[in-house]
Structure formats: structure tokens, C-alpha cells
Design a binder for these strands. Structure first.
Lengths: 217, 217
DNA sequence: AGGGAGAGTTGAACATGTTCAAAAAGGGTG
DNA sequence: CACCCTTTTTGAACATGTTCAACTCTCCCT
């Protein structure tokens, strides 16, 4: 069938591209090289992916899906916010691992607001929804103060984005420092959530949430 | 004198570039267009600036200097951490204002770790030192718990980087929402610093600082 | 079978950032 | 002034992302 063949070609180009990203890095993987390696013409590659950035978006999608799968498995045995948080974040870093060498180029094409790839934008809405869903799962089954519960998954996703940024800059072998950061930050976040019940702390958190709401509108 | 003439040419190219960035945006300002407008050859532009990114770095330097000047003036009458923080951050946003339309392209060239322009990297060490110095000034003359004092300026600078990221994505007219965020977040940070003295909160903050130290090494 | 519409493919062409070898200009020294 | 070394200038050349008009293929309708 036609649709199948077309999809196969598309998949071939994509897989070739991702494999070359991993083996040669982002800059060295030119569109011409991808096309040549996949055995199609340059124009064909562009027929399926409107830009090189689109290939990065696909990479992002795949990594989120992989994170979701890994997190779901790891969350199975984990109880308590800190441990569940660690599970989700480490799963994300595991999924991103092979692409660390060109993480810089990754965020360069991902962060510009007008980029179709940016994680806060329209094109990645679906991937973002899946990513925040992971943190919904993290929160499930833990005791969170009511006034904070609805907002927490999104806040955790934001924190995760920050960690990914740290990861991109992390030059220690195997991004060891990022792992240390995750293991250290997760318990702190857990304690912070607990503290947010205290009468001295609660108003502060409530105002922060209100500010977040005001600024998002 | 020779040095003077060379410096004048360099300055001419730079001023032309920054003016064109403001008037036409980043993408439309090609190196050829800069050279033509400045009345030099393409090669000459590259003689003075090894890449287009370098021009962005100069822009960053200039904006930090302008922020420093504006902040110093505004800090003169401001007392208390929240107000002083507002002064410094608003000065920064004022300096960046004209470049908002291409803020996305700005961070695209600035954030990649291997980029010579990235604000955490080597090339911008001087500009970063000046930027953290601004937040040293902010902290001066306010009452900060001893165990937090040394780290606070750098933390504030980091928070400021986060706000700039928000600003880049802010599509409200004149980035109104970013201003609201700043005005709302500054008092919260002030109260958070106060709270950090409490016996229930202090250990948490201390552990966070310890984690930061561990992860920077 | 014929033909036409749509899907898929192709490579040349274009704009742009960057490099580089060669030329020109300057400036000091004999 | 002649010579040489350094600084500055130049534009052609290159690689790459992207566009596009033309071409081929497939399959359905009559």
C-alpha cells in the first residue's frame, strides 16, 4: 500500500538521522549526509521533514516517550515524593543520554520562541502534555497539600526543564554531577512540600502560586 | 595613529551591526549587509569579529554595562532587598528592551555550551562578573542571614537569568507580564530570605546550599 | 486501455556564515 | 628613499540549510 511505503521512507530518514546524530553529532550530520546515508535525495528528506529542526522535534518526542516508559516502570515500586521524583527524572536523563554531546545544539534549535521545536510552543504541545503527565503520575499516591496539588506537576516539569539545562552544561563524565543534583534536590523538594503546610510558610507558597497564575494569563 | 584607526573601524562595524539588529532583527542582519552598510568588505568584518556570535557577545557586554549603570543609579534611593532587587532587574530588562524581538535568536546563539557567547562560559567571564557584581550591590546594606550572605548574589543572578528566559518568551505588549513577575517575585524572595532564619526552614536552605556547592565542584 | 490527479522524487539554485590566500597599506629602519 | 615586516583589506570559494519547478510513479475513474 502506498501509505505504508511513504511511512517507511519517512521512518528510514528519521532513523538514519537519529543514528547519525548519535554517532557523528549534530553539526556533522548534514541534511545531505542524512539523505545520502538513507539512499534518498536531498529533496526527499525535505519532503518528509520541513527542516532539520523538525528532526530534533522528533528526537524530543521519542525521548519523552522513552522517559514515559522508563518512568512508568520505575514508579511501580517507588513510594514517597522524593523517590518517585528521582525515578521520573533519572528516566528522562537516561533517555537523553546518547544525545548529550550535542545537547548544546539541541537547545539552540529548541529554545528560540519562534522555533517550531521549542518545548513551550505549539508544535510540541503533545510532547509537553506527555511530559507533564509523567509528573502527574509522580504525584499520584503521595500526600500533597490540597492548595498545591493541582499546580505541582507543572512545577515539577519546570524544575525538570531546569535540570535538563544543567545537564546540557554538565561536563563531568556521564553527567555524574547532574545525577548528584537530582538525588540531592529530590528530598529537598519533598521537604519543601511538607513545609508548605506550616502556617508561616503556607502564605508564601500561596502567593507564589497566585503570581504564577497572574503571569501566565 | 594606527591603533586608533583600527579601533574606529571596529567600532563602526559594531555600531552598525547593533543598529541593524535593532531595526531589522537578527536574521535579516546578514554579515554582508553589515559590511555593506558600514562600508567595509565582508572579510574586514570578519577580521574584527570572528563570527556573528561575537557581535552578540558584544551586545551582551554592552547591555550588562548599561544595566550596571542603570542599577547603580536606581539603587541609590532604594532600601530593603525587594526594592533593591526590583531596581537591578528592571534596569537589566530596560537595557535588553530594544532587542526583545530577536531575543529568541539571541539565546539560540548564547546558550549552547560550546558557544563562545554563552553566559556561563569563559568568554563572557568578565561580563558575568560585572553582572554578579550588580547583585553584590543589591545585597549591600540589607540584612541577610550570615550563612546565606555569601551565596546570595550568585543565586540572585541565576534567578535573573531565569527571568530573562521568561522575558524572551513574553509576548505581552512591552513584556508587561515579565514586569509583573519581577514586581511580584521580589517581595517573595525577600520574605523567603527572612523565613530562612527560622529553625524549621534553615536546615533546608543549608542543605540546598551544600548541594549547590557539591554540584559545582 | 487511456488518462489524469495526486503522491513522491529529484537535483539545481539560492542565501548565508565562514575561511583563506593574496593584495594593499602602513610604519619603522637602514 | 628603499626595504621589510606587520596590520588591514579584499573578494572569491566553500559548505550547508532551504526552496522549487520539473519529472516520475501510482492508482483510480471512465
Amino acid at each position: 500500500m502506498d501509505t505504508t511505503k511513504s511511512a517507511a521512507t519517512r521512518a528510514l530518514v528519521l532513523e538514519t538521522a537519529l543514528a547519525m546524530f548519535r554517532s557523528r553529532g549534530y553539526a556533522k550530520t548534514t541534511m545531505r549526509a542524512i539523505a545520502a546515508e538513507a539512499g534518498v535525495s536531498l529533496g526527499s528528506a525535505y519532503y518528509y521533514f520541513e527542516s532539520k529542526d523538525q528532526l530534533v522535534l522528533e528526537l524530543y518526542r521519542e525521548s519523552v516517550a522513552e522517559q514515559h516508559a522508563g518512568a512508568t516502570a520505575a514508579l511501580d515500586g517507588a513510594t514517597g515524593l522524593p523517590d518517585r521524583l528521582k525515578a521520573a527524572i533519572h528516566a528522562g536523563l537516561d533517555a537523553l543520554g546518547p544525545y548529550h554531546p550535542f545537547g548544546g545544539a539541541f537547545i539552540a534549535s529548541a529554545l528560540p520562541p519562534q522555533s517550531s521545536v521549542n518545548p513551550f510552543g505549539e508544535a510540541s504541545r503533545q510532547a509537553r502534555a506527555e511530559a507533564t503527565a509523567i509528573f502527574e503520575d509522580v504525584v499520584q499516591g503521595t500526600k500533597i497539600p490540597q492548595f498545591l496539588r493541582a499546580q505541582l506537576p507543572e512545577l515539577l516539569w519546570l524544575a525538570y526543564m531546569g535540570i535538563v539545562l544543567f545537564w546540557v552544561y554538565d561536563r563531568s563524565e556521564n553527567q555524574r554531577r547532574t545525577r548528584i543534583l537530582v538525588d540531592g534536590a529530590a528530598p529537598l523538594i519533598g521537604r519543601l512540600v511538607s513545609l508548605s503546610r506550616l502556617p508561616v510558610v503556607k502564605p508564601l507558597v500561596e502567593e507564589a502560586l497566585a503570581l504564577k497564575a497572574r503571569v501566565q494569563a
